[in-house]
Each structure stands twice: as C-alpha cells, then as structure tokens.
Design a protein around this nucleic acid. Sequence first.
DNA 1: GTCTATAGTAAGATAGAC
DNA 2: GTCTATCTTACTATAGAC
Lengths: 200, 200
Amino acid sequence: MARPAKVEDSVLHTKLSDVFREVGYEGATLAMLSAATGLKKASLYHRFPGGKEQMASEVMAGAETWLIEHILTPLGSKATPAARIATMIRNLDTFYCGGKKACLLNMLSSPSADRGPFANMIKNAFEVWIGALSRALVDAEFDRDTAHFRAERAIALLQGSLVVARGMATTTPFQNCLASLEHELLAPPPSLPSAVATHV
Amino acid sequence: MARPAKVEDSVLHTKLSDVFREVGYEGATLAMLSAATGLKKASLYHRFPGGKEQMASEVMAGAETWLIEHILTPLGSKATPAARIATMIRNLDTFYCGGKKACLLNMLSSPSADRGPFANMIKNAFEVWIGALSRALVDAEFDRDTAHFRAERAIALLQGSLVVARGMATTTPFQNCLASLEHELLAPPPSLPSAVATHV
DNA sequence: GTCTATAGTAAGATAGAC
DNA sequence: GTCTATCTTACTATAGAC
C-alpha cells in the first residue's frame, strides 16, 4: 500500500450521506465525515473544495437524482396507478432501510438562520414528489384537489413516521406507514374527505 | 439601569425553546441563545451551570410539562372523545403557531452519536402522547389495535406535516393536517382498516 | 444576577510533502 | 489522490468585577 487508492465517488457520496442523515448538517463534523469515508480531512477538501457545505450539497443533489429515478419515474410510468405507487413504496422501504435511516429533507432543513443553502433544493424535492404522486392519483380518477390533498398527506405521513421511528427507536411506525400507504392513497373518496378545508 | 433586572425563568425558557426549535441542538450556539434571551453568555452559565445541554434539557422538561397540561390532561378528561380531541388540536395549533414553529421532539433528536441526552425524554413523550390518544379512541368504541394504530398515525402525520411545512416554507400542510385530524381519527373503521399489518 | 474579559478547546480550512 | 502538519476561527466554558 505505497499509494492509497482513490475512493470511488459513489461510495464516497453514500458514506457522506449516511452521516448527514444520522446527525444532520450542523451535527456532522469533518472528523465524522473523515472517519466515515476513510479519507483524511485534507483529502475531503481535495474532493470538495467548498468543504462541508459542498459535501452536503452534492449529497442533496444525489438524493434528487435518486428521487427522479426511483420515485418520479415510476410514478409517471404507464403502469396502473396502484402498481406505480407500489413501486414507490418498495423503493422507499429500501432507501430508508425499513425506517432505520432518516430523510435528508428533514435532516438538512434550516442549518443556518437564512434557512440554509439547501432550502431551495428541499422545497423543490417536496414539490416535485407531491406533484408526481398527485398526478398518479389523478390517473386513478381522483379529482385534482383530492389527489393533491392525499399526496401531500402521504409525504407528511412518511416523513412523520420516520421522525417518530427515530424518536422511539423502533421501525414499526415506518413499517405500519408503508404497509397502509397504498390502500390509503387509493381508498374510495367518501372515507377520506378531501373537502375538509383544503388550502391548496 | 444601574443593575440589570433578573430575566424571568418562564420567558427565558420560552426564548431558549424558540432557538432550539428553529435550529436544533447542534445548530444552536451560545451566541444565538445569548442574543435570543438578552443575557450574556456568562449569565446563561450562571442560570444553567451545565451549559447548552442543561438549557436544552430544561427546555425539554418544560415541553413535557406542556404536553401533560395541554394534551394528556384534556385527552384523559371526562368530555366526549370528540371534544377531547378537538381540545388537543386547538392547543397544538397554538403551540406550533399554526405550523410556523417546529417540534422539539424532532429538532432535539440524535444530537450526538449515542442518540443524545434527550433520547429517553423524547421516547417517553411519544409513548405517553400516543398512549393517551389511543385511550381516547378506545373510549370512542374502537378496539385497542385500531386505536393504537390511528393514534400513532396521527402523531406521525402531525410531525410530518411540520417537517413538510418547514421544508416548503408554507404552513398549509400543517393546517390541512389539523383540519382533517379529528374527522380522520373518529371515522368509522372500514374506511381506515387497521388490520393492514399492524405491528404493535 | 449580570456583566466584561479571557481561557481552552474543537471545528473548519489550508500548505506542502509524497 | 492522499497524507501529515499547521493555521484560523468560532464555540464552549470560566474568572472575577460590579
């Protein structure tokens, strides 16, 4: 081992992402990121001249790519709405490790007083996600308001189940959430009245 | 103004709480806490010898007290289940400022690698909250599994709507959540089958 | 009880050898 | 591309006057 081999970009991003998802942006230190990746601080700066902010930014960009490939694309496919949603749910289960890993959209929120460098990326991610899910529900013959209301609720429920799972140190809230999600999204309208003061 | 007057404990706790709810534990610096309270750093150490950790700990304790007074007590009262839940929802709306302020249970999670000094308080808060809501639903003639499933879901939905609201910089997800919460909790069973793989 | 002033420490970031 | 060593800053924490 005269000369240390280059660490692959993909594994690097994954390792960094794991740290940010676990402790958030402010909680992540270069020492942690160094330990997690196996690269010394100076090496991280060679790869990310912008330092921690650039690392988090690229991790967020990676998450956006993942969202497009594993959520938005399936949701916009030509399969039945139920099948599209089922694919989304399967991919979410993998991505969040059954509820053991948190969501960057929550963990990277409001790092600094100006809502942070990732505020726009986070806002955009929520918007396109809700939008894509909403369109899948429109394809399932729901009216636009109901579809949007349910889509937003589903994303909130998902995020919240991860929060509760983390807080209670158990994955069951997340698993229960995923298990009921498809049925709930596609349940007949009267049961879940979207008409209840939907401020869209 | 020869001698600065003592800052009241209650307002002190509120100001500190606001900072932690906005930027989390790691994100909060003594400079921020000093600016928010109007007390210099040394004064904060006089009040909280344990430093930032003690401040956050007392803030969490205050949140527990609030939870007991404004959530657990109403949920355990002798009013109708619908009335109890309505009271909870009203108090939540006030506490979270209509969705503008985040939840400590989320913002104080996992500050350090060992899940942090507040992990137990957070876990307990979720448990008693879900438990109390669940019992109110049992009083509304739901079976225990359904009650627990819906209670856990409601808390998750609430937490998630705050996450989404923060991420999207709008309060509507939270408002929609609160607006539909009572109806959803008390809706007749067939619409929200609790039988879907409830791992309690 | 609050303050100014100052340690002490850990974090982010850089320089230059290999 | 990675490393050791160092710099600089910002944060936590303390000492002692008022």
